[in-house]
Amino acid sequence: MNSWFVDTDANNMRIDRFISERMADTSRSYIQKLIKDELVTVDSKVVKSNYKVKEGEWVEIVLPEPVSLDIEAENIPLDILYEDSDVLLVNKPKDMVVHPSAGHVTGTLVNALLYHCKDSLSSINGVMRPGIVHRIDKDTTGILIICKNDKAHNCIAEQLKVHSITRRYHALVWNNVTDDTGTVDAPIGRHPVDRKKMAINHKNGKHAVTHYKVLERFGQYTYIQCELETGRTHQIRVHMASIGHPLVGDPVYGPAKQPFKTDGQMLHAKVFGFIHPSTNEYMEFETDLPEYFQLILEKLRNKGTVH
């Protein structure tokens, strides 16, 4: 059970939003389901999702016991960077979906984790995403942290919420980025027309900040580093496209015709740093760019023809 006292800042806030802000790793829709199932009370009384909390009230939520996971454990090799009893850091390859969903019930990172970790995965994010506290897109490569217990999950989720985790990505973008460094500070939400896409959305979007730095210039392309201050869906892809520099290979936010055979955006989660849940020590990990990314950069450096 989780419980909170409603302070002045939260007065008159919708109950689902109130809980969502305090359980950043849990989706609003799941919280609304718990409210509908009468697992949320205010001063011991059941309320609806549109109820507005008042200063001085006491909010309680009962999280149901996790149901048995009907997802197959698969012996899929993992590129493990670090592992202990609390966390596991993996280097996710290209074309691997993080967790099962419609159309992707096998071959995901979760399928591999269930085989490798057995029952040692956090349960907070539900049966479809055991251990998963954050994610990267299918075609994005690089570092993901997996939580093996709920204590570690809550600790990492809180660090993500307050933006204290170090997350640096490397990307190849279209066009010459003229400034050596820059920041994109623009809210991201669902595209108003195409619901499968995200977009800069000043009306309904969530606060999003990306800092970028030029690493190399190749005329028509620029190799950059992006550091996330927030972690919204497709954040780097949307932010860089919004300033005229979509990621090379991006089938959603970039040009229809792409110059290289990349099978998706050229984006790699290169550095991940966090405070360890048990030792309270800062740990930081870094991975090499995938081979396809390195080859394209080398050909651009040599001004050769990329096929």
Score class of each variant (00 low, 15 high):
229 E>P: 06
47 V>L: 09
265 Q>W: 00
211 H>G: 03
88 L>C: 00
119 D>K: 15
238 V>S: 05
119 D>A: 14
181 T>P: 04
119 D>W: 10
48 K>F: 05
259 P>I: 03
304 G>I: 11
110 V>D: 03
274 F>Y: 14
279 T>V: 05
211 H>W: 08
38 E>Q: 07
150 D>S: 10
8 T>C: 13
230 T>R: 06
28 R>T: 08
157 A>W: 07
161 K>T: 10
120 S>T: 13
49 S>N: 14
145 I>M: 04
217 R>W: 14
159 Q>Y: 12
166 T>M: 05
172 L>I: 04
94 K>W: 07
233 T>K: 13
122 S>N: 10
271 V>R: 09
61 I>G: 11
26 T>L: 14
265 Q>N: 03
252 V>K: 12
156 I>G: 01
16 D>I: 12
125 N>A: 10
250 D>L: 13
97 V>I: 15
42 V>G: 02
205 G>I: 03
93 P>S: 05
80 I>M: 03
303 K>L: 03
157 A>N: 06
275 I>A: 06
113 L>I: 05
148 K>H: 09
249 G>V: 03
152 A>N: 13
109 L>Y: 06
133 V>E: 13
95 D>T: 08
259 P>H: 04
143 I>Y: 00
290 P>Q: 03
302 N>M: 11
261 K>Y: 09
179 D>R: 14
146 I>P: 01
124 I>Q: 10
7 D>I: 09
296 I>N: 04
81 L>Q: 13
221 Y>G: 06
161 K>A: 12
150 D>R: 10
270 K>Q: 11
47 V>T: 08
15 I>M: 04
123 S>L: 15
237 R>P: 03
240 M>H: 05
272 F>I: 07
278 S>P: 09
288 D>Q: 12
92 K>C: 02
289 L>R: 04
223 Y>L: 06
101 S>M: 09
151 K>E: 12
67 V>F: 13
21 E>T: 14
173 V>M: 06
181 T>M: 05
165 I>D: 04
197 K>D: 03
156 I>C: 07
127 V>S: 13
284 E>T: 02
219 G>W: 06
164 S>P: 00
171 A>S: 07
128 M>A: 13
186 A>N: 04
81 L>I: 15
270 K>W: 01
8 T>N: 15
123 S>Y: 15
255 P>M: 09
